[in-house]
Design a protein around this nucleic acid. Structure first.
Lengths: 223, 223
DNA sequence: AGTTGATTTAAACGGTTGTTTAAATCAACT
DNA sequence: AGTTGATTTAAACAACCGTTTAAATCAACT
């Protein structure tokens, strides 16, 4: 973490990533950040235009680093089988979200994203456009290929959200999980197992969706 | 909403449910609540011991009402087939979480629970013990029955979280979803479709988990 | 050395927060 | 009518927030 940064601007950014990650945008105060960075509060408003300006830069850098370190295709060529591409997507997603080299899960910087969901700041729309939307499109295409031709786009969208929702849950609902299953060790230590579970579960889910659509496209499914 | 409550205590509780639901524990202010209830700020500290006391009572009442209106078994007898019990669980869960008679999804009182995940208040542990833990146990039993005998408990737990995670995602990640798929109408209007999707997807997921465990309990699965 | 412009600082500003104080009001009973 | 105790109120309190101001410091160039 401490890279012994010399410039004040960099020191502020590093401290802000830490404090914003731990407490979120609203709860974090620029005085805490200034103290952690060893600078005056006014220096923050001088280098960035204000609290929101600093936060936007931190969030943008966080997303950028995460998606660079864990690319969603994991170096796989786009012509690889859809199941392989799904595995790459899920594994990189879990590692990016929960891994210590990534956002570190609920106890790390991923909490920033969790808080961003709880109440979005003006910075959310930007990072969605820059980073999240392209990856959502990528996953939708994988799912559509797995579902096969002639399947309604909204079905692919629902499966997409089912996949992402599983991974997100482990990052977002950590307080619940530790209260509900305290015997279970933290997810951060079993990321690959989690990714494999999500992959298998989701492949099975997609298969069953295909079945239900081809067998009975309209009613609840015959006996 | 306005039930023309006479007692100040009830008026405060009603207003607090509204304001806490819209803004969360920290962002909501007792002055907003006092104004909405038409009482003085000091009255809140008189009847409840403070902001946290009021919040705890509101949260407890919210959970209690939700689980009463949408019981997780939907009146099904406990000896019914596991698949039916899962359907009841998922449908009641989605309706409770997203339905207008329930917690109203992200734009309603469910946001309170979302914020409680983002940063838990001291009131979370209580409602988990009172309401959530029993229902988690119920779902784990259903999943274990679907998985069949001789399956590791942690596999059932993972499937349980996969199911709940899908539903939760629609409530927690609403800001993301509206940014990513603005053409899609709000989930609150398609609850039954969502529940059916989650049910089918999850049944397929559980099936595939069973397959993977019986075929290759240890490696990544054959060709 | 002296000037210039960018950077950093201490201090204060205006506003909001949860909570408390002490006085005023109300209802019920003697 | 008068007393008592619970309730409600206006007002103040102390702490904190993000931001701004104006002066002090620094680095670079003439």
């Amino acid at each position: 973490m401490n890279e012994s940064l010399t410039g004040t601007r960099e020191r502020i950014l590093a401290a802000a990533a830490e404090i914003f990650g731990a407490r979120g945008f609203k709860a974090a105060t620029i005085r805490q950040i200034a103290e952690a960075a060893g600078v005056n509060v006014a220096a923050i408003n001088y280098h960035f235009k204000g609290k929101l300006g600093l936060y936007t830069e931190v969030l943008e850098a966080l997303l950028s680093e995460g998606f660079t370190r864990y690319p969603a295709d994991m170096g796989l060529c786009p012509e690889a089988p859809a199941a392989q591409r799904l595995e790459a997507f899920v594994r990189s997603f879990c590692n990016r979200l929960l891994g210590p080299e990534g956002w570190g899960g609920y106890h790390g910087k991923a909490r920033l994203i969790v808080k961003e969901m709880a109440d979005p700041s003006p910075a959310l729309a930007e990072v969605v456009d820059h980073h999240i939307r392209p990856h959502k499109r990528m996953l939708v295409e994988i799912v559509q290929e797995l579902l096969g031709p002639g399947v309604a786009p909204q079905a692919a969208l629902a499966c997409t959200f089912s996949i992402v929702g599983q991974c997100f849950y482990y990052a977002m609902a950590q307080p619940l999980l530790t209260l509900l299953a305290p015997e279970r060790e933290d997810v951060e230590t079993r990321i690959e197992e989690l990714a494999e579970h999500v992959l298998i579960f989701s492949l099975g889910g997609i298969d069953k969706i295909v079945d239900s659509l081809s067998v009975a496209p309209g009613d609840g499914g015959g006996p």
